[in-house]
Simulated scan of single mutants.
Amino acid sequence: MNHSLLLHRHADSTGWATTAATAIARALQGPQRQRLLLSGGSTPAPVYRQLAQAALDWSQLELGLVDERWLAAGDANRNDRLVEQHLLALQPQARLQALAQPGSSPASSVQAANAHWRQQPLPTVAVLGMGNDGHTASLFPGARDLAQALDSTAPYASIDAGDCPAAQPFAQRLSLTPAGLGHCRQRFLLLRGNDKLDTLTTALKSGNPRHYPILYALGSSTGPLQVFWCP
């Protein structure tokens, strides 16, 4: 594996969720104000439930999102709904900054998210996922405006992934850019299934981040990408 990646293998989902949550909580400990960016999808739900039990100063911890689907507020398929159901419901002191703003447009929501970013400390931790196509956040290979997002110096961008089967039926997205990922001091990638591990291995062998955007999440001088995997 790449020197900027550390793979933690687990035999079952229970040990996987517990160990990942413990590692995330440990990274968030400290007297300074912390920021935690979270992903949606079904994979991280058990990790979030475990994380909610951690002895953190939740009132001083700001939660944000790695990406969001452009859907109406309260839609069950939004990423912030998953975080609310599996973490905030168990830890009501935590606060979540939504990405998709009610009554706004994707462009305006991205502008607001980038303005909020500049007013806050840099993220301590980003919890990521990955699709079988090698995307992370909403950086889908083949998206029509992917190149613009990849080259952006802003932390968030709007993504039109209407041509990407893996994004369907949620084509319009808001997403961290590689620039945004680069500012996250520690990155944790949650994977389940042999197919995901195979995709990650293929991506690493390719060395092509524009075809496998997960490579933009690889660790930097602040530490390796921590990958937690179970079958």
Rank of each mutant, 00 (worst) to 15 (best):
R210I: 06
I159G: 04
D133Y: 04
D67C: 07
A23R: 13
A161T: 07
Y212G: 02
Q101W: 09
Q85D: 14
T14I: 11
R118N: 13
Q186P: 01
G193K: 09
L189G: 03
C164L: 07
V66G: 05
F170E: 01
G219T: 08
T136H: 08
H211R: 15
P123F: 10
R33Y: 01
V110M: 03
S220W: 05
L28G: 09
S104W: 03
G74P: 13
L225H: 02
G134A: 10
A126W: 07
L174I: 15
T201N: 15
A55E: 15
R210A: 13
A21G: 08
A154L: 14
L197F: 06
R187C: 02
L87Y: 06
R95P: 05
I159R: 03
F170A: 03
T153P: 00
C184L: 11
A113Q: 03
C164M: 10
G223D: 08
L65E: 04
A115T: 14
P141G: 05
R26Q: 14
A94F: 06
L122M: 12
T18W: 00
A94N: 10
L71P: 05
L5Y: 01
Q168C: 03
D195A: 15
A166R: 02
V110Q: 01
P123L: 10
T14M: 03
A55F: 04
T43D: 13
P155V: 06
S104Q: 06
I214Y: 00
D57V: 04
